[in-house]
Design a protein around this nucleic acid. Structure first.
Lengths: 207, 207
DNA sequence: CACAAACTTGAGGCAACCCTCAGATTCGTA
DNA sequence: TACGAATCTGAGGGTTGCCTCAAGTTTGTG
C-alpha cells in the first residue's frame, strides 16, 4: 500500500540531492501561487537551477506534481481525523468541509489538484483515494445520525469541491470570505430537515 | 433600439458584409464549443476567411466578443420575463435558475462570459447589467413572498453562477445532469424555512 | 591527484498563438 | 470597360512555453 516513498532508489550525489530539494521547495511555492500549470521555467528559476536540471529530476510535469502534491494533501488527514473524532456527527461533517476549503483557499495547487484529481499522476490520485475512505465515513456518520439528508452521496462532495474551487478562485482577490457564505447556504440545504425530493432520473437522452 | 445592427457605421461593401456575417456565425459556433479564448485562427478558418480578414472586421478579441455575446445573452431576457410572469414567486425564482444554467450548459462561451462579465468588453458588461435589474426583481419578489430566505442577496447569485460554471464544465462530458442535482441541494438551502444564521465576519452582502 | 561517472547547463528546435502589412484581388461606379 | 478605393490574403516576426542533448562541471572514490 504505502510502500516507502521513493525509498529503495539509488543514492543521489550530494549536489543532486541538494538541487532536488531546492526544486521541491520552489515547486511547492510556485504551484501554490500560480496553479498546476505554472511554467516549469519559473520553478527552475526560483530554485536557482537550470531548466535542464528540473527535467533531470522530474522528466514530466506529472512526476513533479506527484512529488509535491501528496505532501500537501497530508494536511487533509488531520482534518478528516478531527472530523471523525468530533462528538457531533453534523458538526464533524461541517467542520470537515470548512477545513477542506480553507486549505483549498490557501493553496492554489491544492485547489486545482482536488478538482482534477482523477486525471492526475497516479501518486496524486492515490493520495486522493486513500483519503476518500475517511471522507465516506464522515458522510455516513452524519447521515445515519439523521442530521445529513439521506440522499447525499459521497460523489456529491466531488461536485461541491468543483463548485467551491471556482468560488474560491474568483473571489480570492476581492472578497476572500465569499466561500464561507456560500458554504453556509449549501449546508442549510444538506440538513435532513431541509431535504426536498431531488429531480428524478434523467430519461431525456434525446431532446 | 437595436434598429439596424451596427447602426451609424459606413455601409460595407457586399463582400465585406458577407464575410462579416460568416465570421459572426463561425465565432458563435467556435466560442460555444471551445470557450472565450478559442484561437482566432480557428474562427477564421471555420468562416472560410483569412486571419487578416478577421482582424479587419474585429481589431481585438474583445471587439469580436462584443459582437457575439450580447446576442447570445438575449436568450436570457425570455427567461427572466418568464420568471417574473410566473404566478408563484418561488417557482419563478427556481425556474429562472434552471433556465439560466441550462443556457450555460449549452454554450461554453456564455458560461465563461457570465462568470467573467466584469472584466469583459463594455458591450458585454452592459448586456449583463441591463439584465441584472430584472434578476434583482425576481429575487426580491421571492423574498418578500416569504419563500426565499431573507439574507439572500443578488450578489449571492453571482457566486452561484461561479460555482455552477465549474460544475457544468467538469461534468459536461461524463454526467451532464450533475448540475441539476447540485442546484436542487442548493435550492433547499435557499428556502426561507431552511435558513440558519450565516457566519459573521462580513455582515451583509453589499458589494 | 586523477579520472570516470554523475550531474548541470542553456542554447536551440518545436509548436501554438498573437498580430501586422505590402501586395494581390474584388467591387462598384462613371 | 476601366480604374481607384475597399477589401482580402498569408507569409512572417514576436511571444511564451515545452522538451532535448552535446558539451562543460562537479563529485567522490581509488
Amino acid at each position: 500500500m504505502m510502500g516507502g516513498m521513493a525509498a529503495g532508489s539509488k543514492p543521489l550525489r550530494s549536489d543532486a540531492a541538494r538541487n532536488r530539494d531546492k526544486l521541491l521547495v520552489a515547486a511547492t511555492q510556485v504551484l501554490a501561487e500560480r496553479g498546476l500549470d505554472a511554467p516549469l521555467e519559473h520553478i527552475a528559476r526560483r530554485a536557482g537551477v537550470s531548466i535542464g536540471t528540473l527535467y533531470n529530476h522530474f522528466p514530466t510535469r506529472e512526476a513533479l506534481l506527484g512529488a509535491v502534491l501528496p505532501q500537501r494533501m497530508a494536511a487533509l488527514d488531520e482534518i478528516t481525523a478531527a472530523a471523525l473524532a468530533h462528538p457531533d456527527p453534523w458538526a464533524g461533517f461541517a467542520g470537515f468541509l470548512e477545513g477542506l476549503f480553507t486549505l483549498q483557499a490557501e493553496d492554489h495547487s491544492l485547489n486545482e489538484a482536488l478538482t482534477q484529481s482523477f486525471s492526475l499522476a497516479t501518486d496524486v490520485s492515490q493520495a486522493c483515494h486513500r483519503g476518500f475512505r475517511d471522507v465516506e465515513r464522515i458522510i455516513e456518520r452524519a447521515r445515519t445520525a439523521g442530521r445529513l439528508r439521506a440522499d447525499f452521496a459521497p460523489t456529491d462532495l466531488v461536485t461541491l469541491i468543483w463548485a467551491m474551487s471556482q468560488v474560491i478562485r474568483e473571489s480570492m482577490e476581492t472578497a476572500p470570505d465569499t466561500w464561507r457564505r456560500f458554504l453556509a447556504f449549501f449546508l442549510d440545504g444538506l440538513r435532513a430537515e431541509a431535504a426536498h425530493p431531488l429531480p428524478q432520473g434523467h430519461r431525456s437522452a434525446d431532446r
